[in-house]
């Protein structure tokens, strides 16, 4: 397949396929999880759990006292990676147009050179985090195949996007096609891996805050 043909497939049927698998997987995971249910807590609450739950969804992003000192790379690396990934995804004008074509609305973008720098920082951070998975005792102990798969499908869009932007690799049209395909791969893989956390973390944090909050503890 030539570059233009690959690009057209990626923008057309490829996207349809990836979005379908992604949404199918998401719904399966959400609904199968939701139906497990939860027993009502009959103890007398000190406070209604909803407020504390919602609060923790946001406040858990602030590390616990001492946490940063114990494991700086995990926290800082995690923050820089997530920030960089989200900003390059959401504030690069071509991406905004892609999202607008799906959502029906867009928003202002950042100058491409800023996105470029941020993209490079994000790539470097991801590599550092991978190295840490090999070298740090706790990370090495916990890491499984799922972690490597998730890392790879997250890394490829960043790498291919950066390469395409800088005219690295093969011709631009093919690199752009590969970039879009790598995003489609990411979409397909998300529901089958720990990448689900991008959705479920909100519920997990809510439960955490709610369970503690109804006892009057702010976490």
């Amino acid at each position: 397949m030539s570059g233009p043909e690959l690009l057209l497939w990626a923008r057309g049927p490829g996207l349809q396929f990836a979005v379908a698998i992604f949404l199918f997987g998401l719904l399966v995971r959400f609904v199968e999880l939701w139906l497990l249910g939860r027993k009502t807590d009959l103890s007398e609450a000190r406070a209604h759990p909803m407020g504390p739950g919602l609060r923790t969804v946001l406040s858990r992003s602030v590390p616990m006292p001492g946490a940063l000192k114990h494991a700086p790379l995990v926290f800082l690396g995690g923050y820089i990676f997530h920030f960089g990934f989200l900003v390059t995804l959401l504030f690069y004008v071509p991406h905004i147009h892609f999202l607008r074509s799906i959502l029906g609305f867009g928003w202002p973008g950042l100058p491409p050179f800023l996105i470029d720098v941020l993209g490079l920082v994000t790539i470097a951070t991801l590599i550092a985090l991978l190295v840490q998975r090999f070298t740090d005792p706790v990370r090495r102990f916990l890491t499984r195949t799922d972690d490597y798969v998730a890392w790879t499908v997250t890394f490829l869009p960043l790498l291919s996007g950066y390469a395409a932007f800088h005219r690295l690799g093969t011709d631009y049209t093919t690199m752009l096609a590969l970039h879009i395909l790598s995003v489609e791969l990411l979409l397909i893989v998300i529901p089958f891996t720990k990448l689900m956390h991008m959705f479920t973390f909100m519920l997990a944090r809510w439960y955490n805050g709610a369970i503690a909050g109804r006892k009057g503890v702010r976490v």
Binding site: A71, V74, R144, D147, K194, M196, H197, A204, Y207
Partner: peptide, 16 residues
């Protein structure tokens, strides 16, 4: 239950 399933699904092996 639902909370436990949510927790398992959210763990990213960060080791914190």
């Amino acid at each position: 239950d639902r909370p436990i399933a949510t927790f398992f699904e959210s763990c990213v092996h960060c080791g914190m």
